[in-house]
Design a binder for these strands. Structure first.
Lengths: 397, 397
DNA sequence: ATATAAATCAACTAAATTGATTTATTGACA
DNA sequence: TGTCAATAAATCAATTTAGTTGATTTATAT
């Protein structure tokens, strides 16, 4: 017998859920008139009127858009997300650089601060974050500060396993420390899953309900999306694609990561979007081996989960990412795959920015997305669960 | 942007959902008093009173159980599932035998018919099913016939790929044919997923919310359970563990199946629960190789999905199944698994009966389980979705 | 006899629904 | 070109579903 810890439905819980659903539909499709929302949700026109009235009063939706005429009947009045409806901070802690971004309700980056380092250190990362946050907050109006939902953090898990310099991370709870210093709720999620979440929420391409996502940076990671929801798993370790076992007793991370390429090269690669100067032989060998293990992992995931799409993104020049996708397609077709349908392969749309954007999406998810779209953990501060508070109780602006 | 086709919540939809939740809790925990149900669901005692009153009137719950005294206060009056609340037919079509069972609301097998064959043929399977169903129906009262929810079918997918004798299955829709001949709704699901669903719904061991399930019979298959729900995937091919790619360019089904063991042996093995007479050398080699590929697949699934448990069951003597579990545990620990927590391994509790029981659970899921627990497809007959009809509209018996 | 806890009764509330009404447009016709 | 019916969006008013809360009844242990 399996234990399903479902929770009962109540009329009281419905409103908040339906508010989130409407915001999500507009985020996905762009500005929508109320009639289209009624159709998409299955709710009555009246219910949509009631819900959107409150969302407009709360400053989350904007009804001021151009009326759409042309068809018979009253013209459509599209409702758009209000860019200033909420603001979010996103912190990415990487192997060689930390990055803090301020993102608005539409996913536009409004501010950005970064700090490169030879290796990440918890104390210095905390100090950088506190200082950079203070700087950013100083530039906001009172109204904007009141609408800051919180901060999300994206870091690789098990950092301390990656070298003795990273040992200080063991046992540290930077999320808690930041939440106390900054006096705001802070969420934490694996960087690969964050990148995947960013692609779902802010990415520019249409995505199916189910797909696998690889993110290749200094480390290799990723995420799994099922039924439109990013999975995190019981111990928040789902999408640990770097740990996926591949032939020869190795794992994906032993082969397909930028750190492997840097080792072969004997020098570090640029941290910005400038071109990578690589010898063709080294590049080809890395591409070949990486594509082999990644396609092996992709096929395994497809056998287990029946996924129609695999997205590949990473902190690398777009041309290299596209070459990796192309090589994977060849390798995958050449592997025995009786009984499974080969997935479509596609490059991601966010590249280097994906992790910080995904971090910022953690508080957005918690407050504004329908149940578990991005599956964020509970925040540190406060005993109350924001999911239980309807958005209109934020009050009109 | 990912597309989430969520549906809005309404007070009207809540009742049916909460009825299912309460039935599920009692199915899982055994007879429960109303107070415990209120606690488990988060609903008020009054709401539980209202819901259970209707479920009792509909003949699905039985309040006649012994009062539990011993604690201070009014004694507990446990509510139990009514065995005759609903009946279900389950059809398993295997490589060497078809089996039809009649199962009651508690999961007890009340009737069973079987037909062995050298290989399955759609016409003969259909005729057997129609005849056996008529026989079973003839033995029921009118009341019982009215409470028959429908039939579920468990078959391997892509049967026609397994030999030219199975070619007639290509393009056949036996589900539709049976639904028309029997004038009842018929559901279809992969046999490995059915076995997994049976373990969830009728199994006797406590299971976590997330686990992987292997079912080793003539073919190898399985299922994945996430958040207490069996996944089927966009094209109903999730849990295709037989197609999982393993080292040496092979797949799980090339190594870990009873058909491989029969080939090595040069003769078929018994279809009932009698002991298997195997040479130790052949057995050991099969165990060794099978355990290797299964543990490889299990580790991959754990990397992607963060699963704490792997269940292994199959159509084989329990001792052999247990030996397979033990061998897998050794292999898995010996594989490199940096960054992942090894799952617990455990044998299933249903063995040979799992597939037919799981087939019968398909209509049960559709009508009585909370949303998508077993993720059954929609039935063939009728335009209406039984999920939208509250159970008490079935009327009192 | 009293405290305790289960279960129910009665009254109230949240958030939908349905049906009638208002509003702004297109397209037909004088 | 001006007027009016048809159309469809959006809103208003009343109703329904299915919860909740607080008071009451009931059966037990101490």
């Amino acid at each position: 017998m399996s234990s399903t810890t479902s929770v009962a439905w109540t009329p009281q819980g419905a409103r908040s859920q339906n508010e989130r659903l409407i915001l999500w539909l507009i985020r996905r499709n762009g500005p929508m008139p109320r009639a289209a929302l009624a159709q998409a949700t299955g709710l009555s026109a009246q219910a949509v009127t009631n819900i959107t009235r409150e969302l407009i009063a709360a400053g989350l939706l904007d009804a001021g858009g151009e009326r759409q005429r042309g068809k018979v009947g009253q013209p459509l009045r599209p409702l758009a997300l209000a860019p200033d409806g909420a603001l979010f901070l996103g912190l990415k802690v990487g192997r060689r650089m930390a990055e803090l971004v301020l993102v608005d309700f539409l996913g536009q980056i409004r501010q950005m601060r970064s700090q490169p380092y030879p290796f990440p250190d918890p104390d210095r990362t905390r100090d950088f974050t506190v200082a950079a946050t203070a700087e950013i907050l100083a530039g906001l109006t009172d109204e904007q500060r009141a609408r800051l939902s919180g901060m999300g953090m994206a870091t690789p898990y098990y950092l301390w396993d990656w070298g003795h310099e990273m040992e200080p991370w063991r046992g540290r709870d930077l999320r808690l420390e930041l939440s106390e210093r900054l006096a705001m709720p802070v969420w934490l999620e694996n960087d690969g899953s964050c990148a995947c979440g960013a692609e779902m929420i802010f990415g520019t391409a249409e995505l199916p309900e189910n797909f696998l996502y690889f993110y290749i940076a200094h480390f290799a990671g990723g995420g799994v999306v099922l039924d439109g929801r990013l999975r995190h798993g019981p111990t928040r370790n789902a999408g640990a694609l770097g740990s996926y076992p591949v032939p020869d007793g190795r794992q994906v991370l032993d082969v397909a990561s930028v750190s492997v390429l840097e080792s072969a090269l004997g020098r570090p690669l640029p941290l910005d979007d400038s071109a990578w100067d690589l010898s063709p032989a080294i590049l080809q060998e890395w591409l070949d081996k990486s594509a082999t293990v990644l396609s092996h992992a992709a096929l395994g995931a497809v056998a287990v989960l029946d996924l129609p799409l695999v997205v590949i993104d990473g902190a690398m020049p777009p041309a290299l990412r596209d070459a990796l996708v192309a090589t994977m397609a060849v390798k995958m077709a050449a592997t025995r795959h009786h009984g499974i349908t080969l997935p479509v392969l596609r490059a991601g749309t966010l590249g280097r920015r994906a992790r910080a954007l995904g971090a910022a999406a953690l508080p957005l998810d918690e407050e504004f997305l329908p149940g578990g779209t991005f599956s964020a953990p509970r925040p540190v501060r406060g005993g109350h669960d924001p999911r239980e508070t309807p958005m209109h109780s934020r009050g009109a602006s």
